[in-house]
C-alpha cells in the first residue's frame, strides 16, 4: 500500500506555543521519533453512514426541549479532501460548539452567560461520495477565557475527523470571516501565517438559505497519499 504523505509541519502549529499558556507544561519536549508506516498506521476506525442519526447534523433541532434555540441560524458545509484535491467520502465529521451567548453546555464551563435550554451544541455527520458534509447550527458566540488579561476566544466550531486511516486523524477549529478577535487569539495564531487562514470559513450567499439561515463554507484537507517523487 502507498504511504500517506508526512504531516506538513509548515502548516501545523508548534507543540510549544508559549502565548497559549496551557502549552508549556503539556507540549512534548523531545524530538518526535520517525515511524515507518505499517498496517497499524494505514488502517483506522471505520464509521459510516450507519453511525449517525437523523438529527445528528442539525444542531438547531437536536437539543430542543420546548422551542427553537436562540441566535443566528447558520449552515456550515464544505468538502473533505485530500492534498491532491480528491474527495474523501464516508468520513465521520464530529462537531461541538458553544451557544449564541458564548456558553458551552459542558459542566466545567463557568462563563457567566446563559445556557440555552434548546441548544446542545454537539453533532456529527458523514461525508457523501463527493466528500461533502453539511451542518445546520446557531452561530457560536465569543467567550472570555483565563489565558491572559481580557482574553476572548473568537467564535469557533470544533471539528473532529477520522478520514481513511489513523494517520488522517484531525481535530481542528473553524472560525468565522472578519472576526476582530482572530488577530488577538493565541490558539489561532499558534499556526503559521499563510496556513492559519485555512481555518477561517468563507461566507457564501449561494449556501445561504433565503429567509432562514446564513451559509458558511469550510473545506477540510486531510493528509493524502500517492505523491509523485517530483512533488515530494
Amino acid at each position: 500500500m502507498d504511504a500517506y504523505n508526512p504531516r506538513d509541519w509548515s502548516t501545523q502549529p508548534a507543540y510549544l506555543s508559549p502565548e497559549y499558556k496551557s502549552t508549556p507544561l503539556r507540549a512534548p519536549t523531545r524530538a518526535l521519533i520517525p515511524l515507518k508506516q505499517t498496517l497499524s498506521e494505514l488502517t483506522g476506525p471505520v464509521y459510516g453512514h450507519e453511525s449517525v442519526g437523523e438529527l445528528d447534523a442539525d444542531l438547531t433541532r437536536n437539543g430542543r426541549k420546548a422551542g427553537e434555540p436562540q441566535g443566528e441560524r447558520i449552515i456550515v458545509t464544505g468538502r473533505v479532501l485530500d492534498e491532491n484535491g480528491r474527495p474523501v467520502p464516508d468520513a465521520l465529521v464530529e462537531v461541538w460548539q458553544c451557544n449564541a451567548a458564548g456558553r458551552y453546555i459542558h459542566a466545567a464551563d463557568q462563563h457567566d452567560a446563559p445556557l440555552d435550554p434548546n441548544f446542545f451544541g454537539g453533532g456529527r455527520c458523514v461525508s457523501d461520495a463527493e466528500g461533502r458534509y453539511k451542518f445546520m447550527s446557531i452561530k457560536p458566540g465569543a467567550y472570555p477565557w483565563p489565558n491572559h488579561h481580557n482574553a476572548w476566544r473568537p467564535a469557533h466550531i470544533h471539528f473532529s475527523l477520522f478520514g481513511p486511516s489513523f494517520l488522517t486523524r484531525l481535530v481542528t477549529q473553524m472560525y468565522f470571516p472578519g472576526d476582530p478577535l482572530l488577530a488577538l487569539d493565541p490558539i489561532y495564531n499558534a499556526t503559521p501565517a499563510g496556513s492559519r487562514e485555512l481555518l477561517v470559513s468563507t461566507f457564501s450567499i449561494d449556501v445561504t438559505q433565503p429567509g432562514y439561515a446564513l451559509g458558511y463554507v469550510f473545506d477540510i484537507v486531510l493528509r493524502g497519499r500517492d505523491a509523485t517523487p517530483m512533488e515530494r
Binding site: N84, E94, C98, H106, F120, L198, L199
Partner: peptide
C-alpha cells in the same frame, strides 16, 4: 501537492459532550 493540510487545533477543555458524551453523562450517544 495542490492543497495544504488543514492545520490542527487543540481539542480544548470542552470536548466531552461532543466526543465522549455518554461517559460524561450528556444526552447524546
Amino acid at each position: 501537492m495542490a492543497l495544504k493540510q488543514t492545520p490542527s487545533q487543540t481539542v480544548g477543555p470542552y470536548f466531552a459532550y461532543g466526543l465522549t458524551p455518554e461517559q460524561y453523562g450528556y444526552s447524546m450517544t
